[in-house]
Amino acid sequence: MSLPRKVLLVGGSGFVGTAIAERLTRDGVGLVVPTRRLANARHLRVLPGAEVVEADVFDPTVLARLMDGVDAVVSLVGVLHSRPGSPWGPAFARAHVELPTKLVAAARAAGVARIVHVSALGADPAGPSEYQRSKAAGEAAIRAGSPDVAWTILRPSVIFGPGDSFLNLFAGLVRRFPLMPLGGAGTRFQPVYVGDVAEAVAESLARADAVGQTYDLAGPQVYTLRQLVEYVGRLTGCPRPVIPLPEALAMLQAAALECLPGPLMSRDNVRSMRVDNIAGGPPQPWGRTPTALEAVAPCYLGKVNKRGRLDAAQLRRD
Results as ranks from 00 to 15, higher is better:
Phe189Gly: 03
Val29Arg: 00
Glu203Ile: 06
Phe166Val: 07
Val275His: 13
Leu9Tyr: 03
Gly127Ser: 13
Ile278His: 10
Leu167Glu: 02
Leu315Arg: 01
Met67Ile: 08
Leu260Arg: 15
Ile153Val: 14
Val52Arg: 05
Phe15Ser: 09
Ala120Lys: 08
Asp56Lys: 15
Thr25Tyr: 05
Arg36Tyr: 13
Thr289Asn: 07
Asn40Tyr: 10
Gly237Tyr: 14
Gly163Thr: 06
Gly69Ile: 04
Ala95Ile: 05
Ala312Glu: 01
Pro156Asn: 11
Gln213Gly: 09
Thr236Cys: 12
Pro87Tyr: 09
His96Ile: 12
Asn269Trp: 05
Ala279Ser: 14
Val211Cys: 08
Ala126Cys: 15
Pro90Met: 08
Ala21His: 02
Glu247Leu: 12
Ala93Tyr: 10
Arg274Pro: 13
Leu8Val: 01
Ala295Lys: 08
Ile20Tyr: 01
Leu249Met: 12
Leu66Glu: 09
Asp276Met: 06
Val229Pro: 10
Val112Asn: 01
Ala126Glu: 15
Asn277Ser: 11
Leu249Ser: 06
Glu54Thr: 14
Tyr300Asn: 02
Ile142Cys: 03
Ala39Val: 12
Ala41Gly: 06
Val158Tyr: 05
Val73Met: 07
Leu235Ile: 14
Lys303Trp: 12
Leu205Asn: 02
Ala312Phe: 00
Val211Ala: 15
Thr18Ile: 07
Val70Trp: 00
Ala206Ser: 08
Phe170Lys: 00
Gln284Leu: 12
Asp216Thr: 09
Val270Asn: 04
Pro298Tyr: 12
Leu80Gln: 06
Pro285Gln: 08
Arg45Ala: 13
Thr61Cys: 13
Arg5Glu: 07
Ala150Met: 05
Leu252Cys: 09
Val197Glu: 03
Leu293Tyr: 05
Ile243Arg: 13
Asp148Arg: 15
Met67Ala: 09
Leu38Ser: 14
Ala202Lys: 00
Val118Gln: 04
Gln314Phe: 14
Thr61Ile: 12
Val104Ser: 08
Leu31Cys: 02
Glu294Lys: 06
Thr61Glu: 15
Asp71Arg: 00
Gly69Phe: 06
Ala218Cys: 11
Pro4Ala: 00
Ile153Ala: 04
Asp216Trp: 07
Pro128Glu: 09
Ala255Asn: 00
Arg267Met: 05
Val158Ser: 04
Asp68Asn: 15
Asp59Trp: 10
Val158Phe: 07
His117Asp: 03
Ser165Glu: 10
Gly262Met: 14
Ala292Asn: 15
Ser146Phe: 12
Leu31Arg: 00
Gly12Ile: 00
Tyr223Lys: 00
Leu121Ile: 11
Pro100Leu: 03
Gln227Lys: 03
Thr236Arg: 10
Pro290Leu: 04
Ser82Gly: 08
His43Asp: 04
Val304Gly: 09
Leu80Asp: 04
Arg267Tyr: 04
Arg267Lys: 07
Leu252Pro: 06
Ala95Ser: 11
Phe160Ile: 00
Ala93His: 14
Leu80His: 03
Val158Trp: 01
Leu3Gln: 02
Pro261Val: 11
